[in-house]
């Protein structure tokens, strides 16, 4: 509970993001002659190598960092808003509802109407799930009520995803369920990244703007109110921010679990358990975590790619178990 955490750790995390992006750029199914590539990039000459780096590997690395930041930040924000250590986009069903929205937009031809439909549908799906969690579990609910609501929403979204993909008029739809449930950054395009970026930026700004409120909320709802916060409004801003960021991120990467759970818990001791300070560091750590996970995916199976959710779950699930054990021993 003490704030004796090393001061260098946050700085190290921030420095790690660009380094990991560079590392991710150097990984792929073909070897890169780097001196040559750097020269061509500097002279803005389009060669096969520079195309591979800028149009195949760069979107992938940028997406991994962005989606990681979104999930880390959203996890921290949801845990603060629900005042519940298990709140997380994946467990609450925000990610799967966002995936459902994106699936409806993509496979039923709505994404042809404009670039914004895919992230927009993702956001609508995410919003529906957060609002229904609020309605189902209420604020300040017990861990079990929240989890039950999450289980119910996740199950419903999961079966709606299967339903939507099953009746989709494309023969590949059903086999792409794996992508939507486990996520991947393979073969993403720069334009997909740019489509998601404005929504992600707005969502993350909305969440971060409520840092002080979340600090106040950690002392209890009445205290927050007496500190002058409009609890209802501030909470709505955070929740809509989460929906916007997660919805857009999931629409271009599929739903990736456990990041939002794992990252804030690892970061919490570093910031003396202050929710406001937890937000930015969780975003940075989330980016680092997903970049590392994506690098692991590329190293583990370069030919037939693993879905990234496999790696995050392999790390995240044991942590989840540890959390349960700790919750049980700390229970009154």
């Amino acid at each position: 509970m003490t704030a004796t955490s090393p001061r260098w750790l946050p700085r190290l995390l921030i420095a790690a993001v660009p380094l990991l992006i560079l590392l991710s750029l150097s990984l792929g199914s073909v070897p890169m002659p780097w001196p040559e590539v750097l020269r061509d990039l500097l002279h803005q000459q389009d060669t096969v190598n520079t195309l591979i780096v800028t149009e195949i590997r760069l979107p992938r690395a940028l997406l991994a960092a962005t989606v990681g930041a979104v999930l880390g930040l959203s996890g921290a924000a949801l845990q603060a808003v629900f005042r519940n250590p298990l709140a997380e986009p994946g467990l609450l069903g925000v990610s799967s509802c966002a995936a459902l929205g994106a699936i409806v937009a993509l496979y039923y031809g709505l994404s042809e109407l404009g670039w914004f439909t895919l992230p927009a549908f993702g956001i609508v799906g995410a919003l529906i799930s957060v609002v229904s969690t609020f309605v189902l579990a209420g604020r300040g609910s017990s861990v079990s009520t929240l989890l039950l609501a999450g289980v119910a929403i996740n199950a419903l979204a999961g079966s709606c995803i299967a339903l939507a993909l099953n009746f989709a008029p494309n023969p590949y739809a059903m086999s792409e369920m794996v992508y939507w449930l486990l996520g991947s950054f393979a073969n993403r395009t720069l334009s997909e990244f740019l489509f998601a970026l404005p929504f992600v930026a707005v969502g993350m700004t909305m969440i971060l703007s409520q840092r002080r409120f979340l600090d106040g909320l950690s002392l209890g709802e009445e205290t927050a109110q007496s500190l002058g916060f409009n609890v209802l409004r501030a909470r709505a801003v955070v929740v809509i921010g989460v929906a916007a960021a997660v919805g857009a991120a999931v629409a271009v990467s599929g739903s990736i679990g456990f990041v939002g759970l794992l990252v804030p818990h690892l970061m919490r001791p570093l910031v003396a358990h202050e929710p406001g300070r937890l937000l930015p560091i969780s975003a940075v750590a989330g980016a680092v975590f997903l970049l590392l996970a994506d690098i692991a995916v590329q190293c583990l199976s370069p030919q037939q790619e693993l879905k990234i959710g496999v790696v995050t779950a392999l790390v995240g699930a044991p942590f989840f178990l540890y959390l349960i054990v700790r919750l049980r021993t700390h229970a009154p």
Binding site: G28, S29, V30, V48, L51, I52, I56, R57, L106, Y107, Y108, G109, S111, E112, A168, P169, N170, Y172, A173, S175, E176, Y179, N187, Q303
Partner: peptide, 27 residues
């Protein structure tokens, strides 16, 4: 992989299933 395709640089590419419904990640 796309990267390999670019490197191998084939003279002709015969794209399959480019007609009909294209609304999937695969397409």
């Amino acid at each position: 992989a796309l990267e390999q395709l670019l490197k191998i640089n084939p003279d002709r590419i015969f794209l399959e299933e480019r007609s009909g419904n294209q609304n999937s990640l695969a397409h």
